[in-house]
Amino acid sequence: MTHAHGHAHAHAPSPAHTPSSAHSHEVNDQADLLDLDAEILAEHFAALVSRLPVRTPPREIVDLGCGTGAGTFLLLDHFPEARVTAVDSSAGHLQRLREKACARGLEGRVRTVQADLDRADWPDLGTPDLVWASASLHHMLHPDRALRQVHDLLAPDGLLTVVEQAGFPRFLPEDAPEDRPGLEERCHAASDHRHAGRVPHRGADWGPMLTGAGFVLADERTITATVEASRDDRVGAYALGGLRRIRHGVADALPPEDLAALDRLLDTDGPHSILRRDDLAVRTERTVWAARRVN
């Protein structure tokens, strides 16, 4: 769900490794975006969880590629008798998740596990009734192997829920900004081109992969969400952080006119700052697959 965006694929750092300040800053920026996504779209994701085709309320849940805990806390809220094992490769994200759990008095219901889910040898994740994988499978180099591993660890009749988005949320109207209409779509096109080889499973149809791993597909749906800035004043911060992150990846792929227009939007002190706009909205589309282990 997370963003959010999960970090299931990256290799876990060695305990002896001290991240650079630039890396720490990047992790914190991404964590902030994951939190904003979860907070702004909380109502939509709560409705998604309420419609999961579980036959009995799960008691043991695994959140694969949990990020900063968007799915973890949704699931804890909806299933008050459940415990969640939250798995991610990012120590920083897991630390933020633990801090949230403590602040909410939920530390007794959350276990965190730092792991690289692209490895063949997974840590012991128990025998969950429900596995939640939001925006994490597409990062994996071997998602087919991961799906088979999930199938094998699930309890009989257990459910795997996969949530993926086709791309990063959009924030600007199509005819914005006025001096370079369509700028946001061109930025996303450049980003998609850059990621095409490195993240080949982004935008994949997970239905056939799920059935190929031995699951029976129980549900598939696409959810479209729009949250206007007039309804949530955090939309501007999400738009600013999201477009800053995109700029970092596509600066050398944009024509000078587009890059200059983007920089005007990202200049928070300038007259064209994205924070000064009154036409922002988070627009996103997520597809949900629910698949059951039947043996």
Rank of each mutant, 00 (worst) to 15 (best):
R83G: 13
Y238V: 02
H25A: 15
D37F: 08
G197C: 04
V110R: 03
G92N: 05
L48V: 12
R264A: 15
G92C: 06
M1R: 12
S230L: 09
H44F: 12
R234T: 02
D258F: 00
R194K: 14
E220R: 15
D63T: 01
A204Q: 07
S24E: 13
R186Q: 01
A189P: 00
M209Y: 11
D219N: 13
T224Q: 08
P208Q: 03
D258V: 00
V49I: 13
T287W: 08
R145G: 08
L41S: 11
F79Y: 15
E220G: 08
E174F: 01
V27E: 15
P19W: 14
P256L: 08
D278S: 14
D258L: 01
G212A: 15
S21V: 11
D232I: 06
F73G: 06
I246H: 05
S134I: 03
V199T: 14
P123G: 12
C66A: 15
D263W: 01
L147H: 05
A31F: 06
L259Y: 02
A31E: 10
A133F: 01
A237C: 05
C102T: 14
I274K: 07
D179A: 10
F79M: 10
D278V: 08
R231D: 13
V110Y: 06
R292F: 06
P15A: 10
L41G: 02
L33V: 11
E164F: 00
G207Q: 11
A12N: 06
F168M: 06
D32M: 11
P143W: 12
T127Q: 07
P57N: 13
S191V: 03
A70E: 05
G69F: 03
D129S: 02
G249T: 11
L64F: 10
A229V: 07
P177V: 07
R170D: 00
P177I: 09
H11T: 09
H25W: 14
S191T: 03
E43K: 09
R104A: 09
P173D: 08
A42D: 11
S21F: 11
D175T: 01
A46G: 10
E174K: 02
L254K: 00
W122A: 13
G71P: 02
R104K: 07
A22K: 09
S136N: 07
H7R: 14
A261N: 04
W206C: 08
L130P: 05
P123T: 12
D175V: 00
G236L: 11
A237R: 07
D144R: 12
A42I: 03
G108K: 13
P58H: 12
R244Q: 11
D116T: 06
A251D: 13
D32C: 14
L74I: 08
A46I: 04
R198L: 09
A70L: 06
R198F: 03
T68A: 04
V288Q: 06
A22G: 07
G158N: 03
A82C: 08
A251G: 04
D63Y: 00
R245M: 13
D129Q: 13
D63K: 00
L130H: 05
I274N: 09
R111C: 03
V216N: 08
M1V: 14
C66N: 06
D279P: 05
R234V: 02
E81M: 02
T284I: 08
L183C: 01
P200M: 07
T2Q: 10
D116S: 07
A291K: 02
A239T: 05
A86R: 03
V113N: 09
A166I: 09
L75F: 06
R247P: 09
